[in-house]
Design a binder for these strands. Structure first.
Lengths: 333, 333
DNA sequence: CTGAAAGCGCTAACAC
DNA sequence: GTGTTAGCGCTTTCAG
């Protein structure tokens, strides 16, 4: 900055004024400074800036898993919306090696950077980890179901998604359906979806067959589900994510099962490209809506004062697909 | 930090020593400080730290488009590798609204943060924008074809991928094939793939039909390609990315064309989930290899001294698929 | 082994 | 309008 000041024959204070667009700088002077900045390729030190102002124009996004299409899309959407409202976004991803410490580490990285806001798109196991920073920096949870009373939360209405799937399955005449049900420790969203499916099916008098799963591998439970189909104990398999549904579809194909002739299949997500070709019946998550609202909320927090805590759960749309049809004859009562 | 010092009844200097693990702190004192840190939930201010040390433990990743599976996977891989070698990673994404200024803005955000290293997974149009910072901070280009002589570059061998596809297509007996060829301004990678396909096909005496495309919408050119197939002018359509291939597959289906009976189709990427179900013949990009090598190179740069500039292009593997078969009879000479 | 003091690059009152 | 000065939170000699 000193170099720029020297080059423009002004003091550092003036350079600072030009940088922050503060009024009261002569057009001529301003031009000289801008020239010097360009000539020297000077990039202001954000860290020094926020150290001096005790504030940061950047908000941090803690992103669960960029490899999954849903998170990829969310990342893109949040980025674009942030750009629109003038928020600088940086993203941090917890390492995917086992252990819950990773999320805390990632969170601390963001906190260490003294970001002006925190967008949390992760399961951060203990919500208390977040609560701790509520007073310090605005926090908005995005796309995660569970959330603290004092934390703004914009999420997907997973129970509704489970019900929607179950209702579609029932409408096609299925009565004996297998639901792959991951433990909450595997994925809160997937667990909520599966539980809602099971409840809805049971309430309608159908016989849901719960297949518990305790690991996050998408293929988990597929072999068992195929076996159930083979024994004609179920006419439909509902999986709590498209990733799992695709894995099951592959397993079914390998086992010589024809979809939907031998078995119907459903997923949830609706983001992955090429889903229309596969013809998977699923729910499309309202990612754009969630991202938009979360960023808007964050912008308000960062700029204005803290609004009262908001919680919203958005519902996706059902995507019909060839994979869901009427049950095979032999399965009829 | 003052509070921590007070709580532990030491001076800030000692706290600093404990934080940086520097030797020469009595075990007893150290324990007291650590205790105070935990009790107060203190997170050191990274910005102040790097301001004082004029160095940063974090390296920045400039990521083109998190919505695309290839970039999503790359993001995840880079993150994990970085974690392994002890590099803190933050990611910045250029806004996707039109205009090339976005990448520069994103780059400046990273530079402003005074990151200790720059991983560039983007097209940043003008390589000179990067060259400017070569002396200041280590730069490694990852997954982008073109690159400056003085910039480390780990990328995909796109021309080889184009050749591999062309050879597979030829081996199946196709002679008249349509190649969707995006302009370089749309995507350098895709353009390189397409050009290599066309060259290889032509050299083998086949008659490639180039279908230029100047927008990045994946559906671009699909209608025209379908028309070529309908008029039986080509027996195979080669697309420079899976995204485009999926779009074409959908267009073909809508037009009543059966793959591979009426037309063979190929893509490039091999990352998207469910590709095996669709049966698309494609090339799987060696994303993990590229990420690993790029991060290793960055770690060397950041820790040790600057090694001589390295350039590597990695070749993917061909994934056979139902979508590529022999040409229909009527297309035979 | 620990404390005091001088900055790191920048902003924000406050003078001129 | 522009320059001066005193920190922001931390590291790092240099004494003790």
């Amino acid at each position: 900055m000193d170099e720029v000041a020297a080059e423009a024959k002004v003091s550092r204070a003036t350079v600072s004024r030009v940088l922050s667009d503060s009024a009261g700088v002569q057009e001529e002077t301003r031009r000289r400074v801008l020239g010097a900045i360009n000539r020297l390729g000077y990039v202001p030190n954000l860290m020094a800036q926020s150290l001096a102002t005790r504030s940061s124009p950047v908000v941090g996004l803690l992103l669960r898993n960029p490899r999954k299409p849903v998170y990829g899309l969310l990342h893109g959407e949040v980025q674009d919306r942030a750009d629109e409202v003038g928020l600088e976004l940086i993203t941090v991803v917890p390492s995917s090696s086992p252990g819950v410490r990773n999320e805390r580490r990632a969170l601390h990285k963001l906190l260490g950077l003294r970001v002006g806001g925190l967008l949390i798109a992760t399961g951060v196991s203990r919500t208390e980890d977040l609560a701790q920073f509520l007073g310090v920096v605005p926090v908005v949870a995005v796309g995660r179901p569970e959330c603290h009373d004092e934390i703004h939360g914009i999420s997907y209405d997973e129970p509704a998604h489970g019900r929607m799937i179950a209702e579609a399955v029932l409408a096609h005449g299925h009565r004996r359906v297998c639901v792959i049900a991951p433990a909450e420790s595997v994925s809160v969203s997937e667990s909520q979806r599966a539980e809602a499916m099971i409840t809805t099916l049971a309430e309608a008098g159908a016989r849901p067959e719960r297949l518990p799963v305790v690991r996050s591998a998408p293929r988990d439970g597929c072999v068992e589900a195929v076996e159930l189909v083979r024994r004609r104990e179920v006419s439909c398999v509902c999986l709590p994510s498209d990733e799992r549904a695709l894995a099951f579809l592959a397993a079914a194909e390998r086992a010589g099962l024809v979809v939907p002739h031998d078995v119907s299949v459903t997923g949830v997500d609706g983001i992955t490209a090429g889903l229309d070709l596969v013809g998977l019946a699923t729910i499309r998550l309202p990612v754009a809506t969630v991202a938009e609202q979360a960023v808007r909320l964050m912008a308000e927090q960062v700029h204005g004062a803290g609004a009262p805590v908001e919680h919203h759960a958005h519902r996706g749309t059902f995507l019909p697909g060839r994979s869901l049809a009427a049950p095979p004859q032999h399965a009829e009562p």
